[in-house]
């Protein structure tokens, strides 16, 4: 009863939280540079390592979905862990800040950030690297930003299980790499053993990669793509709800 607070949203507090997170990033030029620059550098490397346009057209879009997911996972899990261990989350919990304000503040800030990140890597891929996309650029941006938000939401949830930043960083290989192996990037999911296929069916990254493959191959926004998008959104909301459950006003 004592901890029973309904998650009420205050737009003013949510926006203030988003601005605060963006201000923190503004002070940290190196992180900002890495966030924006690393996906582009990796994309350029990929293009010239394979040096085969057809292969790049197939793999490039999948990575465009993968990078924002992985990077936002790491940034959010470490960022929110800092809030938990640094006492700022507890301070916020003594103020009118609602759990939803906190979560949406993060979602909005990292959503905007991923837009910039995806924008830069996309412009480089489409112009310089000559990526050939069948679908529309906007569906690609939509899927990439959703992937970023999925990474943010799962990172936020994962941070509840880390006591230190060392542990939080280890969650990246633990949570993310199995999904990378099973998502269809290395081997098409259809050719996996049944039990692996079943596991990959319940992992969100499989849908992220599937959506990116459709965007790269299908000229129109198909029903299957819509299904992927909805599944990613559902995983994101589910993770946010789980994350909200780990934000406690009262602790022992």
């Amino acid at each position: 009863m004592s901890s029973g607070m309904s998650p009420v949203l205050s737009p003013a507090i949510t926006v203030a939280t988003t601005r605060r997170i963006l201000a923190q990033l503004r002070h940290d030029h190196r992180t900002l540079g890495l966030l924006i620059g690393v996906p582009s550098v990796l994309m350029i490397l990929l293009r010239y390592v394979f040096d085969e346009p057809a292969l790049f057209d197939r793999i490039g879009p999948m990575l465009l979905g993968l990078f924002p997911f992985i990077i936002m996972f790491v940034v959010t899990s470490v960022g929110t862990l800092r809030e938990r261990t640094g006492g700022t989350l507890e301070r916020l919990m003594t103020t009118p800040t609602g759990k939803l304000d906190f979560l949406l503040g993060y979602a909005l800030a990292f959503g905007l950030l991923s837009l910039a990140q995806v924008g830069v890597v996309l412009v480089i891929s489409l112009s310089w690297l000559g990526l050939d996309l069948q679908g529309s650029v906007w569906s690609l941006v939509l899927v990439a930003v959703l992937d970023a938000l999925l990474g943010m939401a799962t990172g936020l949830f994962a941070s509840a299980f880390a006591r230190t930043e060392f542990q939080a960083v280890q969650f990246m290989p633990a949570f993310v790499l199995p999904q990378v192996l099973l998502c269809g990037l290395l081997i098409p999911r259809d050719s996996m053993a049944t039990w692996l296929r079943v596991i990959s069916d319940v992992l969100p990254l499989s849908y992220a990669v599937d959506a990116m493959q459709r965007v790269s191959r299908e000229p129109s926004f198909s029903g299957a793509l819509l299904r992927d998008v909805l599944v990613i959104a559902a995983f994101t909301l589910g993770s946010l709800a789980l994350g909200a459950a780990t934000l406690r006003r009262r602790t022992g």
Binding site: A23, H27, G86, T94, P96
Partner: peptide
């Protein structure tokens, strides 16, 4: 939550923001 102010023993402010940015944020929240 607007009527009680609390300062913890271990400082709970954002190390990567300026003093004023911290106060602006916590002020906006309150």
């Amino acid at each position: 939550r607007r009527r009680v102010g609390y300062s913890t023993q271990i400082p709970a402010v954002y190390a990567d923001l300026s003093v004023r940015e911290n106060m602006r944020y916590f002020g906006a929240v309150l």
